[in-house]
Design a protein around this nucleic acid. Sequence first.
RNA 1: GCGGGCGUAGCUCAGUUGGUUAGAGCGCCAGAUUGUGAUUCUGGAUGUCGCCGGUUCAAUUCCGGUCGCUCGCCCCA
Length: 414
Amino acid sequence: MAGLQPVRGTQDLLPDAHRRHRAVIETARGIAARYGYQEIATPIFEFTEVFARPIGVSSDIVSKEMYTFKDRGEEEITLRPEYTAGIVRAILSNGLTQSLPLKLFASGPMFRYERPQKGRFRQFHQIDVELIGVAQPLGDVEAIALGAEILDALGILKRTVLELNTLGDTASRAAYRAALVSYYDGHKGSLSEDSLRRLEVNPLRILDSKDEGDKRVNAEAPAFEAYLTQEAHDFFAKVRGGLDALGIAYQLNPRLVRGLDYYCHTAFEFVTTDLGAQGTVLGGGRYDGLMGIMGGPETPGIGWAAGIERLALLIDEPAGPQRPIVIVPLGEAGEAAGLTIAQSLRRAGFSVDLGYSGNLSRRMKRADKLNARAAIILGDNELARQVATLRDFDSGEQVEVPLSELEARLAPFR
RNA sequence: GCGGGCGUAGCUCAGUUGGUUAGAGCGCCAGAUUGUGAUUCUGGAUGUCGCCGGUUCAAUUCCGGUCGCUCGCCCCA
């Protein structure tokens, strides 16, 4: 505990940063709605089991990256490190498997106990999309198209590359995995320490290693293509065909992998080179095996998540708040009149601020700092004649307006 | 969890080869203007030099630890 410091890896979202986050969320929400997605929210913490079971206790995520603790009732609780498991749990808890297909949108905070870096925090935020109950490649295409359209609307699609791969079906994966293990077993002497560990835990990950020695070994490694079943091959061809039809560009990346067995077929990431090592801004894939692992009926699913912080770093400055009309009262009578005038103007739809103290010069300065569109000056001079002085901050022009006409005269400033 | 860099005012940073009163710009406050903002001029305050300890006559400066940030590794389900 270090005084007034926030917990490591957490941050305050002050108004400017929060506006960026909101721009990301609202853009995504609006477009997802056009694709037929409905918004839901799930708890930010669950029983640890919800995340641990599908992920596997041996993985790094469970062993070192989850925020896990016991609550006062001695229950094992984990702050959600991702959306999918919690949403799937919610679907099963609420019997929504009777209402397939489901198209769900969500956004909110996630928690991972890891070392913070640029664009990587312990509490961060994601937008998330899940399409449950669609086994056809059309679902993959639509989910990716939705992601691409959101990135485009945010003005950052052109700063990213869509990387695409297939993980095949269960039979393809099993055959490929066996071939890889057999190949790497014959090259153990050339593998890095990390990759020797990966060989035990997650051999596909070796393909993505940044170690130079590993890269040389990988050059000769068997390719997944040869191990794809006809069915998996056709599925991937249809996904690519759909993307082509929509004019969505992509790069095949055979090293784009997922470790867990319930992932299958399509894996994709929109990546950028503008964020250092944290290049992925939106990533997802198909997880047909997840519902079964979590105890529900076997149900196909595909989804993606995007990091709001990372997107917020990339977008252009969003529009600021609506420029207010500022009431500048002079004296007690002016303040009394200003209070009621401000309220009626707000009810009429204007953004109105009411300075709280100071002389005229001081209040005018504050109004300017608020980026005011205009000021309404209410002094004894004005009130005696039932008028207000209206000053346009852009033109510098100033006119007297009868109080009864104020609302109409302000219409252009709404 | 592992390795590198950094930490001075609200912000961006300079500086002290260890020396007594630590600086700039921006921002902030006040005045010129007690009925007029943005411009201009004048003045003012910025501070635990991250924190704790060590060395020293003397530490913001050197050393160690710690916290935080940052870049990378691991990992990203």
